[in-house]
């Protein structure tokens, strides 16, 4: 029985590779894959996916606004994610700090996963009369 918690690592920044030569880029991607394989072998990786740079943003009442996502060359744009199973936040942060693209300006957002929607949880706690059986 594991007490591990899930953490989502979001990799932000999709312009870092522009400053690298093909050789530097190949080296960094190789180190990234090595890091990824290591986490997988340690059983700490529950899921991971790279994202295409393109996409859409859906918003507005009944989703009437659909626009191309402003993902091109942004420090904020999300390029992929890892879903980790680790002991605590310190371990999740320590793993994030080993991300090989950090040194090229990439940023990693470390987010604890909620066992249920935090809003539903706080609502149920605050207003038990609304709780569903």
């Amino acid at each position: 029985m594991s007490n591990n918690t899930d953490y989502l690592l979001l990799f932000r920044g999709n312009e870092w590779q522009k400053r690298l030569s093909p050789e530097e880029l190949e080296k960094t991607l190789g180190r990234f894959m090595g890091w990824f394989e290591e986490l997988k072998e340690e059983g700490k990786l529950k899921g991971a996916n790279p994202l295409y740079g393109e996409g859409k943003l859906v918003s507005g009442a009944n989703g009437r606004v659909v626009v191309d996502g402003p993902f091109a060359e942004s420090k904020e744009a999300i390029g992929g994610y890892f879903l980790l199973s680790v002991a605590d936040e310190a371990e999740a942060v320590a793993i994030a700090q080993r991300c090989p693209t950090l040194e090229h300006g990439c940023v990693v957002e470390v987010r604890p996963v909620a066992p249920e929607c935090p809003l539903a949880h706080s609502l149920r706690t605050a207003t038990p009369e609304l709780a569903h059986a």
């Binding site: 295409y52 943003l57 918003s59």
Partner: peptide
């Protein structure tokens, strides 16, 4: 996008970013 459009939270100001998953790192 069709699945995202039906999400009721959109009426409350939430935005959904829809991103295709790549089988390998696009870089």
């Amino acid at each position: 996008i069709a699945a995202a459009k039906d999400y009721p939270g959109l009426n409350r100001g939430i935005t959904i970013e829809v991103r295709p998953i790549s089988t390998e790192c696009p870089i």
